[in-house]
Design a protein around this nucleic acid. Sequence first.
DNA 1: AAGAAGCGCAACCGCATTAAA
DNA 2: GTTTAATGCGGTTGCGCTTCT
Length: 326
Amino acid sequence: MDLEMEMEMMGMPMSPAMSAAAVASEDEGDLRRGPWTVEEDALLVDYIATHGEGRWNSLARCAGLRRTGKSCRLRWLNYLRPDVRRGNITAEEQLLILDLHSRWGNRWSKIAQYLPGRTDNEIKNYWRTRVQKHAKQLRCDVNSKQFRDVVRHVWMPRLVERIQAADSSAAAESDDVPVAPPVMVTRSMSSPAGAMYHHGQRSGAAPAAGAQFYHRRLHGGAGAGETSCSEPSQVVTMSPDDASSALQSSSSHLFIASPSSAGTVAAASGVIDGDVLSGSWSELLATTTTVTGRDGPTAGLPDFDELGDLEDNLWSLEDIWLHQQC
DNA sequence: AAGAAGCGCAACCGCATTAAA
DNA sequence: GTTTAATGCGGTTGCGCTTCT
């Protein structure tokens, strides 16, 4: 049956844009492929706004789209969804991705659940383009122990330093209200509802509404207070007062009371503009800053044997925070 | 200025799982 | 219990843009 007739019979008159898209698609065969047009996006958004998502195959037909249901779903989830966040992956997000990937491997959709607004596709692309690029630069396999060590003992600590430095400089810029140095808090989570995000005094790094949203989840969201060693960490930067109250609500926090001394990092945005990694993996590991083991601060690499079962749980944010704590 | 190479991202493909008939 | 369709997920590809030579 003709699409236009079918839609009219269903009580859904076609808009001019819909008709144009339908006509254009007819010239190209039964199903369109490739990049989506503005008209197709509008059709999909309008239809979902009216009828909701789901039942993608029938949705594609009824919306007047000559696309497969899978294609419509993908377009909506990865691009058109209103809460999708695009653009730079923040340092906090990078840290969380590295942490979660060490636990779950290429479980992109699961990892994405802990980064609200980020899609599994975006995280997957980030991993393939950025992380694997670093592995290539270091001339080692992304799954090798050498690279995992670099990530754990160099990359992640440097991200932590950048986050802390960004918070420090942001706090210094705010001269209206005296602000105590931020502290870093990690908390084990048992559900995506407790997803990590940064909350602090700095501005511009994330949408304000988003920060408030995550803050709500931190203090009162589902899963708060539940602990599990296999669950990812929550990284939050907050004032000592907030951290204190948060600590009272849960016993599963790890604190770093003093910001990192790595004050040379000027960027206050939390977004990593340049590489934190350069040189060979052995050079990087050799330049690792002082770390703290059970016997106190030591220069160079930590005692890997003290870090638990590296095969089952390569490393975690808790480890990083603990080793940053000097 | 032009071509090559590299990079980032959107989209597709194939398989596995789940739900419905 | 079986079959079929729909959905979800991870891997891969292709295109456009930028940078390099």
